[in-house]
């Protein structure tokens, strides 16, 4: 309880301070030094917060490590690798979000994640970022199926095709990884194609992966229908 109380306190002060900053030519130095000391709390390697530090940081912030908010934070930081924040990235993130402590940060991230839901171009940027972020390879040209599936569930949890697509990725054998083009096209696909796939046109420029996905869904739904039909038939006799 005490803790939460204190945090509300800081929030109010931060708001005040922000107002002051807005009014009188803010000196950016102060929040920086605060962010810097925050960074020092979590860093476990030289100039870098490693996986353990990130876990602690998230916990203190009050978010799951694999939540959309942390992804947004990573995006704002321009983090290049999952599980790591370098000092430069960390400070850049605080700067661009205009925050200097965990409470303001949490507020910012919550409001940002709300805003993003209605800001398609910004969301596209985040989506684009998530590919490189999730990529384990140095070239950032592909991500393996496992990472792609987790990332999709994280970033497009309510997408009309996400559940089916992740399921498809899990069962198919042909693809070991997903490239950038396929990744970007899936967002487009989720935005434009209805959940029943009725407006899907295979003569359009969709990547083969998506063609195959659609075929897979259609086939399995036929199979389901058939089963349903035969069951019904059986009932009759």
């Amino acid at each position: 309880m005490a803790r939460s109380k204190s945090s509300t306190n800081t929030t109010t002060t931060s708001r005040k301070r922000k107002n002051i900053e807005d009014k009188e030519e803010p000196s950016l130095k102060k929040p920086f030094t605060q962010a810097e000391s925050l960074f020092n709390n979590y860093k476990d390697e030289v100039e870098c917060i490693g996986p353990d530090g990130v876990v602690n940081f998230c916990k203190d912030l009050g978010f799951d490590c694999d939540s959309i908010h942390i992804l947004i934070l990573a995006w704002k930081m321009g983090a290049s690798k999952q599980g790591y924040f370098t000092k430069g990235e960390f400070l850049k993130g605080f700067e661009s979000l205009g925050c200097y402590d965990l409470t303001t940060l949490k507020q910012q991230l919550l409001s940002l994640s709300d805003k993003l839901k209605n800001d398609s171009p910004k969301f596209s940027e985040l989506y684009k970022f998530s590919f490189a972020f999730a990529s384990e390879v140095d070239s950032k040209k592909s991500i393996d199926i496992q990472a792609a599936s987790s990332m999709l569930q994280l970033i497009l949890p309510d997408g009309p095709h996400t559940v089916n697509f992740v399921e498809f990725l899990r069962t198919q054998q042909q693809y070991k990884s997903i490239n950038r083009d396929q990744w970007l096209c899936f967002l487009e696909f989720s935005k434009t194609v209805k959940s029943d796939l009725s407006n899907y046109d295979e003569s359009e420029a969709w990547p083969l992966l998506i063609d195959e996905f659609v075929e897979h869904v259609k086939e399995s739904s036929i199979a389901v229908n058939k089963e349903f039909y035969t069951e019904k038939k059986d009932d009759r006799y």
Binding site: N179, R180, D181, Q182, A205, P207, L208, D211
Partner: peptide
Amino acid sequence: ITAIKKAIEYLIE
């Protein structure tokens, strides 16, 4: 068609 798509995707990559 799939062969053409494959080539296109390769060239995008």
